[in-house]
Design a binder for these strands. Structure first.
Lengths: 201, 201
DNA sequence: ATGTCATTGCACACCGGTGTGCATCGGAAG
DNA sequence: CTTCCGATGCACACCGGTGTGCAATGACAT
């Protein structure tokens, strides 16, 4: 019902491929140019401009996708019935593949592409802070930092580990879950237990 | 015995001022140009090139200073007699002013200025890993990550907090110490105790 | 007083990335 | 078969930053 003609399909496929390689390429080299993106997508520079009039439009699309996916995961995981620390553990496990997929977020987060785009991540931060606050009120998380900061730091720990480790994914995600839980003030025992039980989820 | 003439002194003063503002400016905006640096130093662009033939020379100087100062602190603090976790707490307290001074390090660390400069930070990483390994062997730190990675992540946590918090320095450094100790697998009680006793040091 | 030399204030050439214009091709749509 | 239209391959202008060249200035050294 949405699209029909093989033409439109092929066009969307091209656009999708551009987005894919851009996410990958800008993740590794945030200052890559439109020419690099085009080459990686097996397309001519001019064609990229056909889909994205300006570089910023491309980046914004990436940011929107990332923020959307992460927000969806967070919303899905942060239900009032589950303890906050368990919700966080689940969050990290489901965030993990995205953390690699959206290495661009590292660049986005530090505002490398301007404020407009940086603010797209704002809603994620807000949701994160809410979860953290809930955990602090329940005594599950520490209060060595206010909720919003604790959320950002815990979140950045996950990305830092994703950026650092490139071994067995199963081992790495476990390390990320444990470490980020420790950041939030969860005890080592509880952190290990959560990381293990969330694996079988 | 080193330098005498007022001329040479004034020149060194100019050079020092350029370095100072460059550290500050590139810390906030890593992509600032030589023109920006010059303007901030109250000098003409051409003069900056007089002291630093290429932009990279300026950045390298900054990186060398930063690596040197941090290595000095680390060497000073990591003595075999003190428990590793206490050494870390002291390290964070003395690193804290530098973390603000050398916000450039954030950019350096992610290799934004090329590999050559990135490697200047290598010795710091190595010293960090040694300290962590000592702590792990003594049971003071966790083993959820290998020593080198744990060192980098703990270190990056400190910088992440420095980047995030800009309130009361005394409170912020305490939060940074506690949080980074938690990352290393130190218990919350011990972390708080270390953060407090290191304050009176 | 004379010379030295860091700094100045231009001038430039160069480069790489951006974004646009336009004629062209070729396959799908009608 | 003709029309449509996305992709191509050029062209180009523009911009901002880099690094250099050089004459002029003026403070300091001798």
């Amino acid at each position: 019902m949405a699209t029909q003609t093989a033409r439109e399909l092929a066009m969307e496929e091209t656009r999708a491929r551009i987005i894919d390689v851009a996410r990958e390429l800008l993740g590794q080299r945030p200052d890559a140019g439109m020419g690099d993106v085009a080459a990686a997508a097996g397309v001519v520079r001019r064609t990229v401009y056909g889909h994205f009039p300006a570089r910023n439009d491309l980046v914004r699309t990436l940011a929107e996708q990332a923020a959307g996916e992460i927000a969806a995961v967070l919303e899905d995981v942060d239900v009032a019935e589950t303890p906050a620390d368990e919700a966080w553990a689940r969050f990290v496990h489901r965030l993990w593949p995205l953390a690699h997929r959206y290495r661009v977020l590292l660049a986005l987060r530090r505002g490398e592409y301007g404020d407009e785009i940086h603010e797209l991540l704002g809603s994620v931060d807000a949701m994160l802070a809410t979860l953290i606050r809930r955990g602090q009120n329940a005594g599950a998380f520490g209060t060595h930092l206010p909720p919003d900061a604790l959320g950002r730091i815990g979140y950045s720990a996950v990305f830092a580990i994703a950026d650092d480790r490139h071994g067995d994914p199963a081992l790495d995600v476990r390390a990320a879950a444990i470490t980020s839980l420790l950041v939030l003030g969860v005890s080592a025992e509880r952190a290990h237990s959560l990381a293990d039980t969330s694996l079988s989820d």
